[in-house]
């Protein structure tokens, strides 16, 4: 079995981490040679702020650690990983629950209510619908980011980014009244504005869904 090292981040101080890794490498230089790594960000205290994932990965690589995936729960980390095309594993607690072989049929839990946004989502804003669908009843500006574990519906122009199924749900879809997005992504498969603008349906009401890892855009 492949041995994968997990690095659980307890702080977000890259200089300090650099020193700590250096000390570890000094103890066992042979161990740190192209070691596959899972970067765990889910135990990072909230107060530690935004993680610069790119810089963090570079630092790890510098010490011989190759990041294969991250473990995270915060929307910002998930979207940063998606942007780098990096797989995201659920937080450790959640994963253990997944392994639990509970019979699927018995689950008759109440459906999670959708997150509904009625005000315009302006540039710089990020909205995450955790464990549910996201419904926006206004315009989504360029520079805004929508994230949902489920589907995303935008009853207005979608000019920002929309990432559905961010925890890996390939069945998730994105619906919008006017496609003008900077990026659409479903379960990590994405298309940027550069591709989207070439779509004949650019500017129109569309839905996006995945079939066999390909993001398809169809008329609504």
């Amino acid at each position: 079995m492949l041995a994968i090292t997990t690095l659980e981040l307890a702080h977000n101080d890259l200089d300090r981490l650099d020193r700590q890794l250096q000390a570890k490498v000094a103890q066992a230089p042979a161990f740190f040679e192209n070691t596959p790594l899972v970067l765990a960000l889910d135990k990072l205290p909230e107060a530690e702020g935004t993680v610069d994932l790119n810089a963090l990965m570079q630092l790890c690589q510098h010490h011989g650690l190759r990041t294969l995936a991250i473990r995270a729960s915060r929307a910002e980390d998930v979207s940063a990983a998606n942007a780098l095309n990096l797989p995201v594993l659920p937080p450790s607690g959640a994963r253990e629950r997944l392994v639990d072989p509970a019979p699927v049929k018995v689950v008759e839990a109440e459906p999670r209510p959708s997150r509904i946004i009625t005000q315009p989502v302006r540039g710089g804003m990020q909205i995450y619908a955790q464990g549910c669908d996201l419904i926006v009843l206004a315009a989504v500006s360029a520079g805004a980011e929508l994230l949902a574990d489920g589907n995303i519906h935008v009853y207005g122009p979608l000019r920002g980014r929309a990432l559905a199924g961010v925890k890996g749900n390939t069945q998730a879809r994105i619906f919008c009244q006017q496609l003008a997005a900077e990026m659409l992504s479903i379960a990590g498969q994405y298309k940027t504005a550069e591709d989207l603008r070439r779509e004949p349906l650019w500017g129109q009401a569309v839905q996006a869904s995945l079939s066999a890892d390909v993001l398809n855009i169809r008329s609504l």
Partner: peptide
């Protein structure tokens, strides 16, 4: 226009 949009977001939040 982008910066104004951003500012509108801050005014609202």
């Amino acid at each position: 226009v982008r910066d104004s949009d951003r500012m509108l977001g801050l005014l609202a939040s």
